[in-house]
Amino acid sequence: MANKLKISLSPHVHGGDSVKRNMLWVIIAMLPALLWSFYTFGLGAVIVTFTSVVSCVLFEWAINKFILRNPRNTIADCSAVVTGLLLAFNLPSNLPLYIIIVGALFAIGVGKMTFGGLGNNPFNPALVGRVFLLISFPVKMTSWPVPHQMTAYADAVTAATPLADLGNANLGDLFFGHIGGSMGEVSALLLLAGFVILLCAKVISWHIPISIFASAFCFSVIFYAIRGGMPFADICVLSLKHLCAGGIMLGAIFMATDYVTSPMTHKGMLIYGVLIGFLVICIRLFGNYPEGMSFAILIMNAFVPLINNACKPKRFAKEVKK
């Protein structure tokens, strides 16, 4: 026996899971929607995705190296790639490069590294970046290119979001993704495919997405019913359109489930999901913005510590009364 024996406390084996594995599965789960966005928006989508991912990784590397002086650079865990992809998913495909870079800097620099990097950020970095851009460049961020302009980038013809006129949109188009919108959010079907991948890889549990879908659908039905003037079947169809249009799918599956900024217990996850669903419908129906997913998630991110405090996991046994 040549080497010294190692001494440590148990357990002496590890399940082999790693941050990188989880991040890679998230990336794989995003691929169907990403490829669809390439197909739908063409060259613009490729440029936006590439810029966003590269600048996110570069900013994380640079901040780690020059500001935090972290000896162990964290870009290897691929979390910056995920943030970059998510940011790109939230942008229109004709956004100028400098805006994307500013968004990436804000997402990584302010949203993530200010708090100490991976694991410490209270808000989802990609959403922080997106909301920052939405407030800073409201016009550019809300004019989405019309689909199928394969070679167009900055010169693409734009249109309003289907959310502005949901009553006339076709549910099938919304579901399969023959519409305009932010890059990643157009095809509900492919986002759901990503959800299945994440579930199968045991990266996330079903609690957050399902509770968001259920709650958004229910509250939408309730609010439309209170407003009245529509048969119940139409209300249901309209509510389904709400789920498929805009960012609810994308947000519920990929953004709200972000490990760092979501609650730790299943009960907490359900509360978090229900409240996100409620908020997003409130913003969509009563707010100024046609879309409210980013705001709903960010608002609930702020409540996560409270939820964690309030929702303890189900203990094995009740405490003995003293």
């Binding site: 010294k4 024996l5 190692k6 001494i7 440590s8 406390l9």
Partner: peptide, 8 residues
């Protein structure tokens, strides 16, 4: 002299 290695 060190006889073992602590890894915790």
């Amino acid at each position: 002299p060190r006889t073992s290695e602590y890894v915790g």
